[in-house]
């Protein structure tokens, strides 16, 4: 809780000050998007040459939330009045340059990272390149509703977001009491925080449902097994200070995104049987042993792939519990995107 802990302890990463720092870094992350209207669908008399829109979009935001801004630009600059009058934004949908549908209910940061790792399995791509905008095609008609799964409205997106929050809550604690205990105004505040990209507004409420990173190891720098031997279920009346602790959850909400699919999800208990914290390397070895061979329990790892979380190539020794508390998206999920290593830069 105190700055003294922050300065004095080698495990400063588990103090609130650094937790807030990483949460803010995650929150403030943005990705460059280049959105072009499909040239075949551009209405007659459009101002060609201007039909591309560039935006630095928040990672925690969603495509339906950037549509109003995009629409304003197209109406003001590209379409003529006749075209603008008949434009129906309910028909709009997005595709990547390679032709994959972009889902309304995926956070924009996840769309970006998933695209990055999917490119890693094709030749001549490298993470080392300067970040380039993700090129999106905007279609103005005939949405493939069956595949998009969701209506393209901010309201449908909000409902999906709330569903994800509750699913994450259920994974962590075995119930959704923390989410359902929020007042309506508080739940709305979470979504408003995302819409306005307002860290304080979102975290004023989110801090009530996201696990804390204190105090498991703030007193004892070396991650000793003894610190973790008490199983979460043995928590007396659930009244101890670390009742909401990241290392006490039943499971960390995590999904693995492989290049071009599939998406994998399972229970991810934060501690191993011996009481030590589960690391990213151990987690990946359990679930993707052919890419992250389990034989190497400590560096150097002989991995064939890397893990991208919130755009960051994440160190293998990162603890899953910590990732869940500090690097999860606004919906509470840690999205681990797996890319193929093409050089030695990230090993």
């Amino acid at each position: 809780m105190t700055m003294a802990t922050y300065r004095g302890s080698p495990s400063a990463f588990s103090t609130p000050a650094s937790t807030t720092l990483f949460r803010r870094l995650t929150w403030e992350g943005t990705v460059p998007l280049e959105i072009r209207v499909d040239s075949k669908e551009l209405p007659a008399n459009s101002d060609r040459g201007l039909e591309t829109y560039y935006i630095q979009a928040p990672r925690v935001s969603y495509l339906p939330l950037i549509v109003p801004e995009l629409k304003r630009f197209l109406m003001d600059v590209v379409f003529d009045e006749a075209a603008a009058r008949i434009m129906k934004e309910e028909e709009w949908w997005f595709e990547s340059e390679e032709g994959s549908l972009l889902k309304w209910h995926w956070p924009i940061g996840l769309i970006y990272d998933n695209h990055t790792v999917s490119a890693s399995i094709r030749a001549s791509s490298s993470l080392a390149q300067t970040p380039t905008p993700l090129r999106l095609i905007l279609h103005l008609a005939s949405p493939p509703t069956e595949k998009l799964l969701l209506a393209p409205s901010a309201e449908a997106c909000k409902q999906a977001f709330m569903g994800q929050m509750k699913e994450a809550d259920f994974l962590r604690w075995g119930n959704t009491k923390r989410m359902t205990g929020l007042r309506k105004a508080e739940q709305d505040g979470l979504w408003e925080g995302i819409k306005e990209h307002n860290f304080d507004e979102y975290w004023r409420v989110a801090s009530k449902i996201t696990p804390t990173t204190t105090p498991l190891r703030s007193q004892s720098p070396p991650p000793s097994a003894a610190m973790h031997t008490r199983p979460p279920s043995a928590d007396p009346q659930g009244a101890t200070p670390d009742r909401d602790g990241a290392y006490n959850v039943r499971s960390v909400p995590v999904r693995i995104y492989l290049p071009d699919g599939p998406v994998l999800q399972d229970l991810v208990p934060p501690l191993l049987d011996n009481g030590s914290a589960l690391t990213l390397q151990q987690f990946l070895s359990q679930h993707l042993p052919r890419l992250f061979p389990p034989s190497a329990s400590e560096p150097p790892f002989r991995d064939l792939a890397y893990a991208l979380i919130q755009g960051v190539v994440t160190p293998p020794e990162a603890e899953m519990a910590w990732l869940g508390a500090c690097m999860s998206g606004a919906d509470g999920w840690v999205n681990v995107c797996i890319g193929v290593l093409r050089d030695n830069a990230h090993r």
């Binding site: 799964l149 969701l150 409902q159 999906a160 509750k166 699913e167 119930n175 959704t176 599939p262 998406v263």
Partner: peptide, 9 residues
Amino acid sequence: AFAPAPDDT
């Protein structure tokens, strides 16, 4: 408790 995402398996 919650409505899952329709694309989850």
